[in-house]
Design a protein around this nucleic acid. Structure first.
Lengths: 216, 216
DNA sequence: GCCCTCTGACTGACCGGTCAGTCATTACTA
DNA sequence: TAGTAATGACTGACCGGTCAGTCAGAGGGC
C-alpha cells in the first residue's frame, strides 16, 4: 500500500512527461489549433485514448505542457540566484537568467506566441485560469510597447543609425508579411546595402495598393 | 460601359472590401484556424459560396485581408511623408508613422500575432509567397531580440528602476501564462506595491514545480 | 516453479460535430 | 430571354473526446 513504486510497464510520471514533451513540440511547431491530439499521441508513441487518461482536455494538455516548460526554465535558472541579494535584486536576476534561457531555446518564441494567441483568442481563459484581466492587458501592453518602443528607439538612436534601414525593413516585413514580397523577392540584403538607390521605388511601391493576382 | 458605376447589387470592389474587412475582424478576434469562413461570410452579409467567388482559399482570404490592412496603414501614413527628405530619412519617417498607427489600432497586435504565427507554423508559405527565409528569420530574430532586450533594458535601466518589478512580473506572467496563476489570483497590483514583502514566497513558489490538480 | 486470478494501463473503432471547399439551382438585371 | 451574381445544401475529411474491450504482468496459493 505505502511506497507504491513503479508498477506496470512505465512509470506514470515518466509517461506523462513524455506526452507533455511531445505536445510541447507539436504545439510549438503548429500552434494550438493545428496541432491535433492524434498527432501528439503518435509523437508520444501512445494512443489517443491514453492522452485522456492523463489530461482532461486538449486545453488542459496545452497548459500542462507550457507549465512543464516553464517549470524547466525556472528550475534551470532559479538555482543560480544568490540568496544574499535583496528580494528585488533576486527577482531581477531571475528575470535576467530567464531571458537568457528564453533566447537560447529554439522553441521559446513559438511557444510564447502560441500562449499569447490562445489567451488573445480566448479571453474566457483569463478568468478561468485566475489570470486577472488587468494582468494580461498589462502584459500585452508591455509587450506591445516594448516591442514597438524598442524598434523605434533602435531605429532612431544615433548610435545605431547605420542599422536603421535594416531594422526598419525588418519591421515593415514583419508587419505586412506579404506586402513587400514582390520587392523582397530580389536579394533583400543587396537592397539594404543600396538603400538610397532603391528607396524611391520602395516607397512608390508602398503607396500603391497591393494588387496581387489582379482584380480581374 | 465606361464609368462602370454600381452595376448589379453592389460594386464588386466594394463587396470584396467588405468581405476583407469582416475577415480581418474575425481573424484578429479568433486567429487564423479558429475563424471560420462561414463566420466571415455571415459577418460580411454574404453566403459562404460568395467568398469563393472572390478568393481562392481561406489562406488567400487571410493574406488578402492582411494586405488590405497594410495598404490602409501605408496610405494613411505615406501621404504625410515630406518628399524633401532624403530617401533614408523618408523611410525612417514612414516607419515612425506606421509604428504610431500600429499602436493606435486596437486590432494590430492580434493581426500581427496571427500573421506571425501563420508564418511560424507554415514555413512553406515563406517560399510560396516569395518571402525569403533569411528575411523572415531576420524579422523573427529582430522581434525576439527587441522584445527581450527591450524588457531587460527597461527592467535594469536606472531611470525606470522603480517600475522594474512591474515589468519583470509582466514578463514572467507573459512567459508562463499560468505558472503564476495561483499567486496572481491575489491582487496583482497589491503584490507589486508590496513586492519586497512577497518576493520570497514568489520565488519559493517559482522554485517548486507547478503541481496543479495533483498528480494522484 | 507453476498456474490462476485480477487489475488497470492501454487501445482504436467510433461518435457527434465542424470544417473548407463545391456546384446545381435560384434570383435578378439588362 | 440571356447571362451573371449569389446562394446554401452538400461532400468528404478531420476534429476532440469516449468507451467497451484487450492483455501484459503483478500477486497469491500451492
Amino acid at each position: 500500500m505505502e511506497a507504491t513504486v513503479s508498477r506496470k510497464r512505465v512509470d506514470k510520471q515518466e509517461r506523462k512527461r513524455e506526452i507533455t514533451r511531445a505536445a510541447l513540440e507539436l504545439f510549438a511547431e503548429r500552434g494550438f489549433e493545428a496541432a491535433s491530439v492524434s498527432g501528439i499521441a503518435q509523437a508520444a508513441n501512445v494512443s489517443k485514448g491514453t492522452i485522456y487518461l492523463y489530461f482532461d482536455s486538449k486545453e488542459d494538455l496545452f497548459f500542462s505542457a507550457v507549465a512543464a516548460w516553464i517549470d524547466g526554465m525556472v528550475s534551470q535558472t532559479s538555482g543560480a540566484i544568490s540568496p544574499n541579494l535583496r528580494p528585488a535584486e533576486r527577482l531581477r536576476a531571475l528575470v535576467h537568467a530567464m531571458v537568457e534561457l528564453f533566447i537560447s531555446d529554439q522553441h521559446s518564441v513559438r511557444i510564447a506566441a502560441a500562449v499569447f494567441q490562445v489567451y488573445l483568442c480566448n479571453p474566457r481563459l483569463l478568468s478561468e485560469r485566475n489570470v486577472t484581466r488587468q494582468l494580461f492587458q498589462g502584459a500585452r501592453d508591455a509587450v506591445t510597447q516594448v516591442l514597438l518602443d524598442g524598434v523605434s528607439q533602435r531605429a532612431f538612436h544615433p548610435d545605431i543609425a547605420r542599422n536603421a534601414e535594416k531594422i526598419a525593413i525588418n519591421l515593415l516585413a514583419y508587419l505586412d508579411g506579404i506586402g513587400l514580397h514582390h520587392y523582397m523577392s530580389k536579394d533583400y540584403f543587396d537592397l539594404v546595402e543600396q538603400v538610397d538607390f532603391h528607396l524611391d521605388s520602395l516607397i512608390e511601391h508602398l503607396r500603391r495598393p497591393c494588387a496581387k493576382r489582379g482584380d480581374e
